[in-house]
């Protein structure tokens, strides 16, 4: 939904880290994308390709790792991903608590040419 804004922040961060590491160019950008971040793969790639020409990240490949929302069940002492109907634990049916709402988007690492 807001991939253009995120792409601009992505490029800024990538260039900063790449320059610091003495990169000639960025080959791959590994992203960790929360399932609930509302980031659509295709839209992100499209916006990234729109903004990246002329930067160190021109032509870089975007690799997206999706991570789900996570809850914790105290009864089962185990993590779970709730379904879309309720937040109940799939094992015991009690309502756990949210641990990660799955909305962040992280740059995990870069592969750069030096």
């Amino acid at each position: 939904m807001h991939e253009l804004a995120l792409s601009a922040y992505l490029l800024e961060s990538v260039e900063e880290h790449a320059r610091e590491a003495g990169a000639l160019s960025v080959v791959t950008i590994n992203l960790v994308v929360g399932e609930r971040s509302c980031v659509e793969d295709e839209a992100l790639r499209f916006c990234f390709e729109l903004l990246s020409p002329g930067t160190l990240a021109e032509g870089a490949q975007l690799v997206l790792w999706r991570v789900p929302m996570r809850f914790w069940c105290n009864t089962c002492a185990a993590a779970y991903t709730p379904d879309s109907e309720s937040f109940r634990c799939p094992r015991c049916g009690t309502v756990g608590g949210v641990v990660d709402d799955g909305t962040d988007v992280l740059i995990e690492s870069l592969e750069i040419e030096t």
């Binding site: 880290h17 740059i107 995990e108 690492s109 592969e111 750069i112």
Partner: peptide, 11 residues
């Protein structure tokens, strides 16, 4: 080609 750890949020 070299790998650089970043771990920074886009936010």
């Amino acid at each position: 080609v070299q790998r650089v750890k970043v771990v920074r949020s886009l936010f």
